[in-house]
Amino acid sequence: MIRLDHLTKRYGATVAVDDVSLDIPAGAICALVGPSGAGKSTLLRLINRLIEPDGGCVQIGGAEAGTLPVVALRRRIGYVIQSVGLFPHWSVARNIATVPRLLGWETARIERRIDQLLDLVGLPPSLATRYPHELSGGQQQRVGVARALAAEPELLLMDEPFGAVDPVTRRTLQDALLEIQARTGTTIILVTHDVDEAVRLGTVIAFLSHGRLVQAASPAEMLRAPASAEVAAFFGGPRLGLRLLQTASAGERADFARTIAGEPVEAEAMLDEVVARMAAAGVTSLPVKDGQGRRGVISLDDVVAR
């Protein structure tokens, strides 16, 4: 879907993005992580051509982005900017309607879409007529996400979209994003400083440092074999192993040939939740049940197995 080919961007002496090559298949969620100033936001801006590269190119759906009409290209790409950037003179509804209006959708279709999106990002319909300054920071962020999603873009660039929302809402929004992604097959590139978010959402994690792409791999691969001490430190240093528990679910490790008594864990539950349950109950095995009503068992050995 999107290919970065030796992409470079300089600002004076700083090389903000340094010879980055990366392939992101259609339907993937690429979590872009790395320390502050690593060039994550710059990379997103290169993709929707808010800035032009000093070297290399971006290919979107097989076409070189530099050759496409830029305004039309951007309307196909949803963009959540780091600083939210809602238009202060427009209501929430009008903000969400930004791209559909640019695309000339019919009013009725836009209205339906606004209701849908407010629901999707967990905002009450009554907020539609409010203005951005009448919202909390987290609510503003969610409107920003809704605005980016409005025209069902084939590519979604999100720069720390959930930074200002509380952890519980954040999880809900992550679930909503996964659901949207599963339904529409949108390719997503998401910048985050939240390691759990990267592991939870990313099908691929790309680690950037000083403009360079240090490692791009699936969460499990990256956690098992971090390419550098910096990457290892980012994912928790000595506690990195705990994050590995977030990359597999109980169902993937359980033995469905037998079961034991007790309150079962859901097969979709991640291993960290299983361990938490074990620790709370003081046991090393737990019953598992899946969506089809199958019963199984998962032990601590299964959890830590490779």
Partner: peptide
């Protein structure tokens, strides 16, 4: 007009004229 709003407008796919009329001049 904050730079973030110009970025949001450009990123959303406003044409330069639309950005001027709909975002910059009203603000």
């Amino acid at each position: 007009v904050p730079a973030a709003l110009r970025e949001a407008a450009d990123g959303s796919g406003f044409s330069p004229v639309a950005r001027l009329w709909q975002v910059e001049l009203p603000l």
